Amino acid sequence: MITIELGLDDLAATSFAFSALMETGMSLRMWTHASAYAEHIPLFNRMRPAFERLDTELITSLVGSWRWIPDFLTPRPTTPWPDFQRELAALRATAPETVWTELERTFLPIEGAVPRRLAGAREDPERLLAEIADTLEAYWETCLLPEWWPRAKSLLEADIVYRARVLAERGAATLFQELSNRLSWDGRRLVIRWEGEPMPAAPTYDVDAAGQGLLLIPTCFSHGALSVITPVGPPWIAYQARGVATLAERVEPPPPGPALERLLGPPRARLLLMLEEPVSTTELARLLRVTPGAVSQHLKVLSDAGLTSRARHGRSVLYVRSPLGDSLAGLSHSGAPRGQALNGEVLDER
């Protein structure tokens, strides 16, 4: 059980961010415990040829049998817009004396020993840290960056916009309740409990935020709230982002109904139906297999008509239907389920 004491100033300073490096580190679980993250399997199967050209022994050694990974692979994000290379530079600058300590904390409670492939860190932590950083960089560039990260980034951005709205409109108690059933909040203490999971040597500690605020981090590789193995620095909690199950799907909304199509035209009608959740222009273009410029033109028309709203996360702008847009979307009565498989239709570039 982890207990975080939060004062009013900490609640006021609650913020959201996500991390490219954290997602990279957490994604290593896919290569050792894929069945726990079945929604990712189709995409990761496509990565496998590139993955197998890497130092797979090193990568898989970083994940314990209980899916734990060393804390230095998941540093607390420092900005709301992740930059993998900047985060990797911070990883390379990890104090050598902490590498072996964190490896022991990760593996000794359950495995009883640090894996052979990582044991060299006892005598030469700097060398192992450089090997890990080099391998993660290659893994990022050849496996995650080309296809997986653009989808994941859009999903994580949309989650933050949604959660920030919940916090603003319904308060911290509702936010924490929706994040994970592991979390409980009594107005002063936020508790992560492991009940219901046979987790040996689960982290147990108390931490006082002491005016440092709380950082909430959506991730694609968690089934409940989690934090660091031992309390280090300002508190953060990672939680499963909404919509992770859609990452491997190629989906679009059902075709618009005749009334909505006649009113807006087929391209804009289909686009409006895609804006039930916040989404970026880049992600819309990927889903519809057109250029971002084509999407932007249609979004401008919808925005000028008051049918969409915009929300910013870092450098990204996400679009979502306005209340008027929701009303118009109700004109679509095709009967097809939302999110049906792509059928070859594309958004008109004109």
Rank of each mutant, 00 (worst) to 15 (best):
A36H: 12
T135R: 02
R92T: 01
A90V: 11
G211Q: 08
D304A: 13
T3F: 05
S303E: 12
A164V: 01
E261F: 03
E178P: 02
A329T: 03
A90W: 03
L247N: 07
P75A: 05
L103N: 02
A12M: 03
M30S: 01
H333E: 15
P42R: 03
H333F: 14
L128F: 08
A50F: 09
I4R: 08
A209R: 08
Y139R: 12
E178N: 06
S61Q: 02
R53N: 05
V207M: 14
I69R: 07
S309T: 10
E102L: 06
W66D: 11
R338I: 07
P200F: 00
I2P: 05
L183E: 01
F107L: 06
P49Q: 00
T79F: 06
I59D: 00
P75Q: 02
A238P: 02
M26Y: 10
P266C: 05
N343V: 09
A285Y: 02
R163Q: 15
A121E: 01
R270Y: 03
Y205P: 02
D159K: 00
Y37K: 03
L156Y: 01
L271G: 07
L136I: 14
F16H: 12
P292H: 02
L73Q: 05
W185Y: 04
R188W: 03
P49K: 00
T106R: 05
N343T: 12
G335L: 09
G25E: 00
P266Q: 10
S280F: 05
L155K: 00
G330P: 02
E345P: 02
L347Y: 01
R151W: 10
G339S: 04
D10V: 04
R76F: 02
K153W: 08
R117Q: 11
W194F: 14
P231S: 04
L118M: 09
S184F: 01
P254C: 08
E157F: 04
L307I: 06
G171W: 03
A50Y: 07
D186N: 14
E131W: 06
Y162P: 03
A158W: 06
V279K: 06
S15N: 12
L62A: 09
T308E: 04
F221W: 14
R92C: 03
M30I: 00
S65A: 06
L103S: 03
T246G: 09
L190W: 01
M199S: 04
E123L: 15
W149D: 09
P256A: 15
P82C: 13
N45A: 13
F18S: 11
P203L: 11
A259K: 09
A13T: 07
S309W: 11
P125W: 14
P80T: 10
L167Y: 08
L58V: 08
L288G: 01
E195H: 07
R67Q: 13
E261Y: 01
T204K: 12
D71W: 05
M47A: 15
G325Y: 01
E126Q: 15
A248G: 14
R117T: 10
R250L: 08
R116V: 13
A90R: 13
P49A: 08
